[in-house]
């Protein structure tokens, strides 16, 4: 934030500002997608359990909806985590490096993330095509609607990695990364 303010007048300031806006938009898209998926599955499964115990019958597709919505909940969460830079990593090396070396390392890390995301995206075509032929039994929805959550997640992570890469090149500060874990 402060780096962007300091460099507000230079062209690189524009890069930082745009990247912040795009990343915030991705963060919000993740929040909306994830909370909607989580809330819908919660309501449906709760109603299903209640129906089973009161009327003795359930909703058949309550056992299938996760096949579509859990991938989207995860994709939403993954994009938020990437936007906030809280993906689980081992951050020993950047902690012991000087500022210059750390800058190079962080550029390398963002590049590696970008490359892995792009290789997943580039190789996704055959699977996506095959999934257009697959239908969920009770919902009657094509599996490709679930698989496309992976495209959203990996494209989102790729965009964030690319923007972070540009931001560091444009002079964003490289404070020691936050340690995050979720065991």
């Amino acid at each position: 934030m402060s780096a962007a303010a300091r460099t507000g007048q230079r062209p690189s300031g524009l890069v930082l500002a745009i990247s912040q806006v795009v990343i915030l938009a991705l963060d919000w898209s993740g929040r909306v997608i994830a909370v909607a998926s989580l809330g819908f599955m919660f309501a449906l499964l709760l109603v299903n359990v209640v129906l089973r115990y009161t009327l003795g019958e359930g909703i058949a597709w309550a056992y299938e909806i996760h096949a579509l919505l859990l991938p989207w909940l995860v994709a939403g969460g993954v994009v938020i985590a990437a936007a906030r830079g809280v993906n689980i990593a081992i951050t020993l090396l950047p902690d012991v490096l000087g500022l210059g070396a750390r800058r190079v390392l962080i550029l390398a890390v963002h590049t590696a993330v970008l490359v892995t995301c792009l290789s997943v995206l580039a190789s996704s075509q055959p699977i996506l095509k095959a999934s257009t032929f697959q239908t969920l039994a009770t919902l009657g929805i094509k599996q490709v609607w679930g698989y496309s959550s992976l495209i959203y997640a990996f494209a989102g992570m790729a965009v964030i990695a690319a923007l972070e890469l540009l931001s560091v090149l444009a002079g964003k500060s490289v404070d020691p990364a936050d340690i995050s874990s979720f065991s």
Binding site: G76, V78, A81, A153
Partner: peptide
Amino acid sequence: AVMTGAVMI
């Protein structure tokens, strides 16, 4: 959701 995303990936 963030925790789920970070663990699930």
